[in-house]
Design a protein around this nucleic acid. Structure first.
Lengths: 336, 336
DNA sequence: TGGCGATGTTGAATCGATTCAAAGAAGAAC
DNA sequence: GTTCTTCTTTGAATCGATTCAACATCGCCA
């Protein structure tokens, strides 16, 4: 019934608690005979280490805290999976929190992780949390920002060049001969969104005959995309854009749903060419397979954890900044 | 730099550690003046409770461990979200683990949760883990099975009636006049898959003119669905089924991709009607919007946590078993 | 035989929050 | 002034794994 402790194991094996602990943590320091006896005692008693006690003593937990903007977005689950696999290699776990683009929730998770004295934090930030992260750092908890390039900031980051991504997307749309472009995304407070838009603007800047309308939405979700799409459908045909760059694939899927809806009858790519961002699995399975800007999601997560591990080893090293390049994936939604 | 403890707070506030602890946990037992002084000291020192120490003393953590078959399946993220929201109401957190339909990973997570002395476990089981769960229970850690009806088992469960779901799906396909049905799903070791198939078989049983072919796949993923779809496309047209019931929406999306692929040219629902299971958001955004069997995913998660909380209060109560009824959602893939 | 190094083992001290029996303070009642 | 209540506060003991200085043992060589 009651859990057994190292003391019970020691008693049973006829050794001291120190030896039991050594068997668990530094078996090379213990004689084979003792290891054997302790192992048997552990098995017989069904002893399981108490993590809380280990943590208390060690001062830090074996868990990495991760916060993402939206767990329902496959991009982030892929990211988390990459992080988890890398962490597992060092015997660490990942706790995944979902901020839902809500500063309140984001802060709550960071507080929680601080209470838990997590090993480190990997976060796709929404609000400006420099202050909180600084406090964590003072406590000895390093943080790595993901999906956000902040080459000047005090914290390490792993990101994809969203400016380049935005440029890629819009240049592709222009290469199709489209001239009345629109960007659908938001909230603009999200750095990634702002960067993608900025990249788009830069690409358009050198083409005086091309216009770029910005349609701001309040979340990067299928629902928000669908609502924006319904608005566009409601316009007279000549006021609609002839190509849309959506801030991510969920939004572009929502747009597509609105366009394909009975009675809407906006053809993609005929009337409107459509490109998204992230290249999630579902993008290729949409009504019209969606073009997208691919990010190496799992690799981003993996890299973030690698950096985190390095920072725990060497807390005073200057921040690392890794930037991956995105890749254009062309499918039916921008073809023909 | 170094974190401050209750001792530091007590010193600064000029009270004893007991009083500080009482302010944190039972403020009603402390005089307003003392509460005020302690609060100020906490703020000034930036004191943050050490969870490991609390846990060690309390014997159990404030985290619920959850294991699902596939985090990339929106059904499970919805489930997790429902659980998380309910848990938050009681000041609890949820750690989400992903077994990937892998008994090894599943076991690893359960071990980890046992080490962590989690508050309770919510699991969508893959392998037979009765033994492990029993051990957890002896340790005082209750478990609730989700997405699996086991009315006779020793553990509480929250599920959807998959037999009924299978029946619903197949009856719908038959009502369209289809006669050469196929079930695509697997591995059969997954109870939910087996139940859905059994429901399908039961529905077919009373229709001697209807056949049900079983196409077993090795994972419930888009990829596995696509592979199965390619096989079907490779058959001569008169050997193909005229309706398919897929074990979940990911599989049906994979099938659909294969059918819609250039050169495949299998029309849905013209040549093959297609219905999935779970009714994930993406199902309605597919090439052909997919019919499905809807499960109240968030509600399942929420209910599981409710039961868990009750079991911690009252460990000796007999297991609870909740079964929700699924719902048929008809879309273009089985229309016309 | 004594001395030295190498190798293994010991167990008290430690991490930090919580608990609870005991002591203290303030007030009420006689 | 004394006794009883009631309300607060105190601080040592506790949870369980880990650490590390001190101790024991053994073999080896001078």
């Amino acid at each position: 019934m009651s859990a057994s402790s190292v003391r019970d194991v020691a008693l049973r094996a006829g050794v001291s608690v120190g030896t039991v602990s050594n068997v668990l943590n530094h078996p090379e320091k213990v004689s084979p005979a003792a290891v054997e006896r302790v192992q048997r005692a552990i098995d017989e008693l069904g002893f399981i280490r108490n993590d809380a006690a280990r943590q208390l003593r060690n001062g830090r937990s074996r868990t990495i805290g991760m916060v993402v903007l939206d767990v329902r977005n496959p991009f982030f689950t892929d990211l988390a999976r990459g992080a988890e696999d890398e962490a597992a290699g060092s015997g660490l776990t990942v706790t995944l929190g979902n901020s839902d683009e809500n500063p309140q929730r984001e802060a709550t998770y960071l507080d929680l992780f601080e209470q838990q004295r997590v090993y480190g934090v990997v976060i796709s930030a929404y609000a400006d949390i420099t202050e909180r992260l600084t406090r964590l750092k003072q406590r000895g908890i390093p943080a790595v920002l993901v999906d956000r390039s902040s080459p000047d900031g005090p914290f390490s980051s792993v990101a994809v060049d969203d400016l380049a991504g935005g440029r890629l997307a819009v240049e592709h749309l222009m290469s199709l001969g489209r001239r009345r472009l629109a960007f659908v995304g938001g909230p603009m407070g999200i750095r990634q969104v702002a960067d993608r838009l900025e990249g788009a603007r830069a690409a358009v800047a050198s083409h005086p005959d091309v216009s770029l309308e910005v349609i701001e939405i309040d979340a990067l979700s299928v629902l928000a995309g669908r609502a924006a799409g319904a608005d566009i459908v409601g316009r007279s045909p000549d006021e609609r854009p002839d190509a849309i760059f959506a801030a991510n694939d969920l939004v572009s899927m929502g747009l597509l749903q609105a366009f394909a809806m009975q009675g809407a009858g906006v053809s993609v790519p005929g009337q409107i060419a459509l490109i998204g961002y992230d290249d999630i699995d579902f993008a290729s399975a949409a009504v019209v397979p969606l073009s997208s800007i691919r990010q190496p999601s799992a690799l981003i997560g993996k890299t973030a954890v690698e950096i985190l591990l390095a920072e725990v080893e060497n807390p005073d090293a200057p921040p690392h900044h890794v930037v991956f390049q995105p890749e254009l994936v062309i499918r039916a939604s921008t073809r023909g």
